[in-house]
Amino acid sequence: MDFSWNYRFGIIILGDSFVGKSSLLQRYTEGMFDKSRQSPLGIDFKVKHLEFEPGILIKLLLWDTAGQERFKSISRSYMRNSVGCLLVFDLTKRQTFERLRDWYNEVIDYVKPSKMVFILIGHKCDLEEEQEVSKEEAERLAKELGITHYVEASAKDNLNVDSAFESLTMEIYELFHAGRIPIREGWYGLSVGVPVDLYNPDEPKTEKSGCC
């Protein structure tokens, strides 16, 4: 499959072990849920193409990460090449919520001076009775950290998964157009591909279209 994309966003998904990062990603990119998949060690990534306005194709490169503490030193390498971050916690494990601030600070520290756009995700909302974190509380934290969206999602029941990824993409897109995300040489977080007005699916015009 070859695509000519107009924009490409690098997106990273972070959070403690077993909050369901890989499941969210798998649900979004493959439309399925498989609780027995192998956990990523180090780095894995998936690709998704998104056309959210007619004629504007965005390619998302989604980095999956190992959540275990000791893998953090490695996750840093790909934080640098992302513009967006899904910060995930498990609604049924309070501890994973309490660690969000650390994750957030770590990312901010590491990507400086680049911009990182966050979305906060309370995962496993299908387990309604086991929830240990309220919506109000999570929203309060999002506000405090300056995160625009908080979404409660479930990869298992396919609740709000697509919309979470799309909200983040939309926000990055809008911030970019408002000039709030500068592009620097050698930074791969956000790239501009085929110019939008020249884009013609039958006749790709630039070199970059060679690889999907």
């Binding site: 192998q38 060690l41 180090g42 780095i43 390498s77 790909y78």
Partner: peptide, 19 residues
């Protein structure tokens, strides 16, 4: 392209290519 080795070799080496 400044591709950090850990980006591609972590799983290779840690799992001795078993995956």
């Amino acid at each position: 392209h400044k591709i950090d080795p850990v980006l591609y070799m972590t799983e290779w080496f840690m799992c001795a290519f078993s995956r």
